[in-house]
Computed example of a mutant assay.
Amino acid sequence: MRRSKVLYVPFWATYVFLYLPIVVLVVMSFNAGRSAYTYEGFSLKWYGELAADERIRTGVVNTLVVAAGSTVIATVLGTLLAVGLLRYTRSKALDALAMMPAVLPDLVLAIGLMLFYGLIDMTLGLHSVMLSHALFSMAFVAAVVRTRLAGADSSLEEASRDLGAGPVVTFLKITLPQLTPGIVAGALLAFTLSVDEFVIAFFTIGNDEPTLPIVIYSMIRFGVTPKINALAAILLLLSFTAVIAGQRLTKIGEKSRAQD
């Protein structure tokens, strides 16, 4: 049965609607003029100005510090959470609670965290954003690792326990190697989410240590310039690279599991 070509129209129209603005943004980042809406020729000068902007350099450093720290915390806790929910505790209520940070609106979670930090009299700064992003990302890491763990061979863990290995040794020697592709994919996802996240950082950071999304927000209040387009293009490249790397690692893990 031949498929009608008409059916492809909404399919491609959806992709054009999603990605055409991104293409326009990248093209305008190479604009020689100062206008963000009129293309006046090809130039790389805005990428050079990014490196000379102290605000952007500070925002990049702060963002990388927060993203690296939150990724480590979220990956460790998310992996342990996935193992605990799937191997030791079967509860739909706990499953729902573990995934709650991923489905809650960012604004609700951000306000709740801000009120909690105020309640415990915690000073806001990069450390508060790091903890907040770890809480937010942990649910995504747990979901990715749990999917990988659900397809792992549990008989190897049972054999390890039968041979006298304790739960810690079994986890380090048997479970963890099987979960490595999922853990790396979850870590890349957590890092990408932290780099791009704005709402939670806006409510939980101090006044003197802005992350890159907050710096961008402060810049676009006075209008969008090709410099902002250039910065957005770089962030897009980093995000796409992390997502593609995560997908590749997941496929490699699936192939190795199929071969085993």
Rank of each mutant, 00 (worst) to 15 (best):
R2F: 14
R2L: 15
S4L: 06
K5S: 05
K5G: 13
V6A: 14
L7R: 00
P10G: 11
W12A: 14
A13N: 09
Y15L: 14
P21M: 11
V24R: 07
S29Q: 01
G33Q: 04
R34H: 07
R34E: 13
R34K: 10
A36R: 02
Y39L: 13
W46K: 04
G48C: 09
G48N: 10
L50S: 08
D53A: 14
D53F: 08
I56Y: 07
I56P: 08
T58K: 14
N62S: 10
T63Q: 03
T63S: 15
L64I: 13
L64Y: 03
A67I: 03
A68W: 03
A68S: 15
A68K: 10
A68C: 07
T71A: 11
V76G: 01
L80I: 11
L80K: 04
V83P: 00
L85G: 05
L86H: 06
L86Q: 05
R87L: 01
R87N: 09
R87K: 11
T89C: 08
S91M: 12
L94H: 10
L94F: 15
D95N: 13
L97K: 08
A102V: 10
A102M: 15
A102F: 12
V103Q: 01
V103W: 03
V108P: 07
L109A: 06
L109E: 01
L109V: 01
A110E: 04
I111G: 06
I111M: 09
L113Q: 08
L113E: 08
L113F: 09
F116N: 00
G118I: 06
T123M: 07
H127L: 13
H127W: 13
M130V: 15
M130F: 03
M130S: 14
L131C: 07
S132A: 13
S132M: 00
S132Y: 02
A134Y: 12
M138T: 14
F140T: 12
V144Y: 07
V144A: 12
V144C: 12
A150P: 01
L156M: 15
E158Q: 13
A159Q: 14
S160A: 15
L163I: 09
A165V: 01
P167Q: 11
V168T: 05
T170V: 05
T170F: 09
L176G: 07
Q178I: 04
I183C: 12
V184L: 15
A185H: 07
L189K: 03
A190K: 03
F191M: 11
T192W: 04
L193G: 13
E197A: 02
I200K: 09
A201Y: 09
T204F: 04
I205Q: 09
I205C: 02
I205G: 04
E209F: 05
P210Q: 03
T211Q: 02
I214T: 04
Y217H: 05
Y217I: 05
T225H: 01
P226G: 11
K227R: 15
I228Y: 10
A230C: 00
A233F: 03
L237N: 00
S239L: 06
S239G: 11
F240T: 15
A242H: 05
V243I: 15
A245P: 06
G246L: 02
G246V: 05
L249N: 02
L249K: 06
T250Y: 01
K255R: 15
K255A: 13
S256V: 10
R257S: 00
